[in-house]
Amino acid sequence: MDLSLLPQAIVSGVLASGLYALVSVGLALAIGVIGIVNFAHGEFFMVGAFLAYQLFVGFGFDPLLSLLFVAPALAVIGALIYLSSIRFVLRAPELNQMLLTFGIGIILQNLALLIWGGDPRTIANVPYRSLGFQVGGVSIGAVPLGSFVISLVLVAGLYWMLASTPLGRAMRAVAQNRIGAGLVGLEVDRVYLVAFALSALLAGLGGVMIGVIQSPTPTVGLGFTLKAFAIVVLAGLGNIRGILGAALTVALAESLVATLVPNGDALRNMVFFAIIFVVLVWRSRRVA
C-alpha cells in the first residue's frame, strides 16, 4: 500500500463524483417522478456520446459546443420515446415496464451499430483531454475538473428547479401522489413527459462528457449505467436529493480501493456492489 498516492486518490474520487452524480440524477428523476426504472438510461448516454462525435466529425464542433445541441436533441428523443411507448405502460406491472425499457435500450444499441458500426470511435481533436495541472504534487485533470463543475452546476440547477419553480413543484406533487395531483388540476401526463425528456437530456449531457473521456461505442453506457443504478439505490430509490452524497461515496470508495489495494482497479465494480449490499442490509435491519 503506497500512502503517498492517497491525496491523488482523494482528488480523483471527488472529481469523478460529479460525472457519477450527473449520470445518476436523470435515472433518479425517472424513478422518483414517473416511477419507472429506465434500463435504457445508459443508451441515452451512448446516443449523447455519438451525437457529440458526429458533430465533431461533421462540423468540427468541440464537445463543449456540442452540449448546446445534444441537450435539446436528447430531450426530443426522450419525449418521443415517452409519447410512443412509455406512457402506455405506466399502469402496467413493473416487469412489463422494465422489459419495455430494456427493449428500447437494445433497439437504440442496434441503431447505433447500424449507423456508426461496432468500432470504437474517437473525438480526435480535444485539446484539453490530456491537460493536467500539478497542485501540491497532485494532478488535477482539466476534463475531470470541467465535468465536475458542469455536473455540479446541472445537478444544482435541477435541485433549484425542483424546489423553486412551478414545474418542479408539480413534479414533486406528481411523485408523491399521482391521483391527488390530478385531482387538484395538474396535467400529470404532461409532467411525466417533461420529466422523462429532462431525464434523457441529463443523460445526453453526461454522454457528451463520456464521449470526450472514452471512445463512443454502442455499449459505452454500460459501465456508467451500473454506477448510476448503484448510486440511485444508495441514495434511496427516487431520492434525487441524496444523489450527490451517494455519488461522492461511491466515487471516493472506488478511487481509494483502486489506488491503495493491489489490483484495486479491477475491484471497482465489487466496491460499489459491496456498498449496495451493506446499505440494503443496514436499511432492512433498521426497518425491522
Binding site: 473521456i213 478511487s255 483502486a258
Partner: peptide, 24 residues
C-alpha cells in the same frame, strides 16, 4: 503487474489510480 477494469467489461475508463502506480 497491475490489473484494471476494462471499459469493455463494465469499467468507466478511469485508469488514473493504475497509471499513478505505474508512474510511482
Amino acid at each position: 503487474v497491475e490489473a484494471f477494469k476494462s471499459t469493455l467489461t463494465g469499467g468507466t475508463g478511469d485508469f488514473r489510480a493504475t497509471i499513478a502506480k505505474a508512474a510511482a
